[in-house]
Design a protein around this nucleic acid. Structure first.
Lengths: 106, 106
DNA sequence: CATATGCGTAACCCTTTGGTTACATATATT
DNA sequence: AATATATGTAACCAAAGGGTTACGCATATG
């Protein structure tokens, strides 16, 4: 599923923070890693995962690598949200089933 | 974080399917495991994880255990959705930042 | 040309996840 | 009382996640 890569990528606060930073502006790899307590290679693995999920992309400029949000990523997030909204609706379904049950047995 | 337990629990299609089944009606453990290709203990571990995330709960009736959606679970899902909506909005932020940039440099 | 810089990859660790089979326990049933 | 049934737990395994340090490589810079 498409969704699983997306939810996996978003299931980590470091990666969500990386996305937040890229909302402000495209960013060099080194700059992107600043301020985190974890090492630069660790950040690199996170960006790789975000890339595999199609949420970010990178272009090489000289010896630097510039990361930015991948335009298609927004769709993936919205698709995931729709799936989770369906899940959230299960509780409504359950409530309705219960009401029906009460109705039929009074 | 609250969110991490929720997103972790929902990041698996088997667990989402279990929730979907519980939307229809509360369900015995054995019945809940029917139709899956994986073993019953595997399902049991999934239900445990859903329980730890506060999405389902169980009551013991005789030797059976009846699972059902935990009322508070819907809030957790909605909270997660709100977080993901914020993430989705990063793309809008990025687009606006780009527009501003173009505006300032023309 | 030599060296410094930016950045990804490799190799390794430990923990978590998702699965298995075998087993223990509590409750029904005969 | 003996047995069958419903179900969770234990022990184990392989793969993935999240972290580390050491290293390799391409590109700037003196």
């Amino acid at each position: 599923m498409r969704i699983d890569a997306t939810i996996g990528a978003l299931a980590d606060s470091t990666r969500r923070e990386l996305l937040r930073r890229l909302a402000d502006k495209p960013c060099r790899a080194g700059e992107l890693a600043e301020g985190f307590t974890i090492s630069r290679p660790a950040i690199c693995k996170h960006t790789r995962m975000l890339g595999r999920a199609g949420l970010i992309r990178a272009k090489k400029v000289g010896r630097e690598r510039i990361y930015e949000l991948a335009p298609r990523g927004q769709l993936a997030v919205q698709e995931l949200i729709r799936t989770l909204e369906e899940v959230g609706a299960f509780w409504d379904t359950a409530l309705n089933a219960f009401k029906r049950y009460v109705e039929e047995n009074r």
